[in-house]
């Protein structure tokens, strides 16, 4: 068994080494993208079972975003929904024999966390402006600026480490048990990995939503206060 902390390129495209997480991610992209393309080609007003399931998934994602951020979910739906779906299928890809989930490698988790970090900044600036967003670091006082900056970095690292640790440990444990015991012994652990993978996907998506929501939240609060002031004014 290879160490989960090391990664070896499968092949190179020019100077670019292509590693197994990238290959698996490409396969997942093809699988998810192809299914999405095929499933949404003939949508009907009266839905089929597949369409109803997809609509239920989208509605659940929208509901989660709305409940967490208290805003219209449409600007954030694609990012949060894609993160949830990708992480879920990446975690569950360990069920395929010989496939190591991309999220069991820290590069993939770091990529996801970096995207969330970038999205947080982008959405914050988009809703509050650059000055307004930077001003949020001085909340509640300017003394909190270093802490707020550190918080931005640490919570991103927490995203990386949480997902990486949970998935990597599951893969590692299953690999150790598989090398020590028979063929059927790891099955309960694999079932547990399914649950862990779903929960981690949900947690990662929800935390991404929370972070983005926190970035746009100050603007939301300011808007709400302005509206209440206007209502009180005769």
């Amino acid at each position: 068994m290879n160490s989960p902390l090391t990664i070896e390129p499968v092949f190179h495209i020019g100077p670019v080494p292509i590693t197994s997480p990238v290959l698996v991610t490409w396969a997942l992209m093809a699988l998810i993208g192809g299914f999405a393309f095929l499933a949404t080609r003939r949508l009907q007003i009266v839905p089929s079972k597949t369409q109803a399931s997809l609509e239920a998934l989208v509605s659940a994602i929208d509901t989660q975003i709305s409940d967490t951020m208290q805003v219209d979910p449409s600007p954030y739906r694609a990012l949060v929904g894609t993160i949830f779906i990708y992480v879920l299928f990446a975690n569950w890809s360990s069920l395929v024999p010989g496939i190591e989930p991309p999220t069991a490698h820290i590069e993939t988790d770091a990529a996801l966390a970096l995207i969330v970090f970038g999205a947080t900044i982008a959405y914050g600036i988009a809703t509050q402006g650059l000055i307004g967003y930077l001003r949020t670091f001085a909340e509640p006082t300017w003394v909190m600026i270093p802490l707020n900056i550190v918080e931005q970095i640490t919570r991103t690292f927490s995203l990386i480490v949480r997902l990486f640790g949970n998935i990597m440990s599951g893969v590692f444990v299953v690999g150790i048990v598989l090398s020590l015991a028979g063929l059927l012994v790891p099955i309960p652990l694999m079932a547990l990995d399914l649950l862990t993978g779903a929960v981690q996907a949900y947690i990662f998506a929800v935390l991404a939503t929370v972070f983005i929501g926190a970035a746009v939240g100050e603007r939301r609060k300011t808007t709400r206060e302005t509206t209440q002031t206007e209502r009180k004014t005769p």
Binding site: V22, T25, M29, G33, A36, L79, I83, A111
Partner: peptide
């Protein structure tokens, strides 16, 4: 890859 997948799913799914 993830950003591309975000675009794909946003365009062809969501």
């Amino acid at each position: 890859n993830v950003l591309v997948l975000v675009w794909i799913l946003g365009r062809f799914f969501f």
